[in-house]
């Protein structure tokens, strides 16, 4: 009987002592969290996409409250979220420029392959197995859809063997860009029609051998532009959106019809209809 009492006393006693220590410690080591962090987290969409550059919505909320991060970085929440956050923080709301992803390649079925690849249906794996990918173009979309699998918003799909972004659904989180082993997905202003949908830096003569629509670096667009907004750098046309006024002069002159987004897909539908 004594044994039982002793055991109970020792264990109960030490339990009580530990409990007391913890209770005191929780007061002594209390970390005061700013209540605004929680309300800002609540105002964010909670998708944890990471598009703002912080580790999820809670991380971004903490950066806003404690680090003074800009309040208009949430592409997914858009203006509504920016206004809600500004109201919590007592600051003036800044507008969010909506940006969407753009796949800088339209090759797909219009680009030749150097080998048939039957392996794992995964861009990164294909690049490893088939010597930088089964496509002859060392820059273009591989078309196995790593970006499609990553997208939380169902906004990117494979069309004609190449990834294409649905601008209405895209929130600009750029998780597809992180998933792309070719690094050819970039953010552009939404409804920006004037884009160069090619990433190839090879000379035009070489590119012509394997791709029907890639940028040749012929500089016709450069000459057509009145605003000094498009330049060929390293055999690839690059648009400076600070200067571009979307007049479409370059798109009209481009011999590959590569520049105007809407034109391009229409053009292709025609080509495809012909080949069928």
């Amino acid at each position: 009987m004594n044994n039982i009492l002793l055991a109970v006393a020792v264990l109960g006693g030490s339990g009580a002592v530990f409990g007391l220590i913890l209770a005191i410690a929780s007061k002594a080591f209390e970390v005061k969290a700013d209540p605004r962090i929680e309300s800002v987290t609540g105002a964010l969409p909670g998708a944890n996409c990471g598009g703002c550059g912080y580790s999820g919505c809670a991380g971004y909320a903490r950066a806003i409250v404690e680090g003074g991060a800009p309040m208009n970085l949430c592409a997914s929440g858009g203006n509504a979220a920016a206004q809600a956050i500004a109201a919590i923080m007592g600051a003036e709301a800044q507008t969010v420029e909506r940006r969407v992803a753009l796949v800088k390649c339209r090759g797909g079925y219009h680009a030749r392959k150097k080998a048939r690849y039957d392996g794992l249906h995964d861009c990164a794996a294909a690049m490893k197995v088939a010597g930088d990918g089964p496509a002859l173009c060392a820059f273009g979309c591989l078309g196995f859809g790593n970006c499609v699998a990553r997208c939380k918003y169902d906004a990117i799909h494979l069309v004609d063997g190449v990834a294409r972004v649905d601008q209405d659904k895209c929130v600009g989180c750029m998780m597809c860009a992180a998933a792309c082993p070719r690094h050819i997905i970039v953010p552009v202003p939404v409804h920006q029609d004037i884009v160069v949908a090619c990433s190839n830096h090879e000379r035009g003569a070489d590119l012509r051998r394997y791709c029907e629509i890639g940028c040749l670096g012929c500089r016709v667009c450069e000459k057509a532009c009145e605003h000094d907004a498009i330049h060929v750098e390293n055999n690839l046309a690059v648009i400076d959106y600070a200067k571009c006024v979307s007049c479409g002069a370059c798109a009209e002159k481009c011999p590959r019809h590569l520049i105007s987004d809407a034109n391009l897909w229409q053009e292709h539908d025609v080509v495809e209809a012909k080949t069928r």
Binding site: A7, V10, L11, S14, G15, F18, G19, I21, L22, A25, S26, A28, F29, E30, V31
Partner: peptide, 23 residues
């Protein structure tokens, strides 16, 4: 009573360390 006492001690200890580190 080793087993049960150790569980008690370790659990309390880790809680304490966690609070200490956080601060």
């Amino acid at each position: 009573m080793q087993t049960v006492a150790f569980i008690l001690v370790i659990a309390a200890l880790v809680q304490l360390i966690e609070m200490f580190l956080q601060k």
